[in-house]
């Protein structure tokens, strides 16, 4: 069974094809990286998968259930969690309240202890009562990742989760990703940090102009001519 199966997914904005017929599968416990130049459709793909925007056509299957055209909250309830390219903390709430807002429906009684677990795992217990608006960019990314964990989703989409984050917080995030993978979670990761992609991703999908141009291991991607042309560029001779 695939954790996530995407078939011929398309989304246009006016005349621009942001995602132009994308198909791929992600297996359970797999960590798949998505790379590509700016404007290649990576974040739009995440918005389609999470239901933030509806697709023009194509299908999305989450844990063998068709979730195409379902609203974002229903997709989240079926086991998909995500972070955003620009962190989206609830700025007028404390760190702890941010986590409590994400508590799973019907599990309110255990939500507070769950929040304390997440705070401890991400080493942010000491800022639990601080307003989210007072956090640094890196801490906001950590908080957003923590909020996702409150719901214990099966599939987690991370959109540049370590961008602008200091090495210490980066290690905390990566450690947590590996820990969650061991517990059976699946990850789809958008990243520009190639070292990070090489370290944690078992497979890489390369996108350009809304299409998948290559799929393979990091070594295969690094050797591929089209990827080098589209993303890495060639030194001028």
């Amino acid at each position: 069974m695939s954790a996530l199966a995407v078939s011929d997914l398309k989304r246009s904005f006016g005349g621009i094809k942001a995602v132009a017929g994308v198909s791929f599968d992600v297996g359970v416990k797999e960590i798949v990286g998505i790379i590509g130049p700016n404007g290649s459709g990576k974040s739009t793909l995440f918005n389609l998968l999470s239901g933030t925007i509806p697709p023009s056509s194509g299908t999305i299957r989450l844990l063998d259930k068709d979730v195409t055209h379902q609203p974002a909250y229903r997709i989240a309830r079926q086991g998909l969690g995500r972070t955003f390219q620009i962190p989206t903390p609830f700025i007028n709430m404390t760190v702890r309240e941010n986590l409590l807002a994400a508590a799973v429906e019907g599990e309110w009684r255990s939500a507070r202890s769950r929040a304390e677990e997440v705070l401890a795992a991400l080493e942010i217990s000491h800022i639990a009562d601080d307003l989210a608006s007072t956090l640094s960019g890196g801490q906001q990314r950590l908080l957003e990742f923590g909020r996702v964990q409150m719901r214990d989703p099966q599939i987690i989409l991370l959109d540049e989760v370590t961008a602008g984050v200091n090495p210490r917080l980066r290690q905390i995030i990566l450690g947590r990703v590996r820990d969650l993978q061991e517990r059976g979670k699946t990850f789809l990761v958008i990243e520009h940090d190639m070292e990070l992609v090489r370290t944690i991703c078992e497979r890489i999908i390369v996108m350009d102009a809304g299409e998948i141009v290559f799929e393979g291991t990091f070594e295969e991607v690094a050797r591929n001519e089209r990827v080098v042309d589209a993303y890495l560029g060639r030194p001028e001779t």
Partner: peptide
């Protein structure tokens, strides 16, 4: 829980939806 949901919707509706909040 309801109060937190309401405040979450106020602060960022898209993020609230992505956390299972209708």
């Amino acid at each position: 829980r309801f109060g937190y949901k309401v405040k979450a919707v106020r602060d960022n509706e898209a993020a609230a939806q992505s956390l299972g909040i209708n």
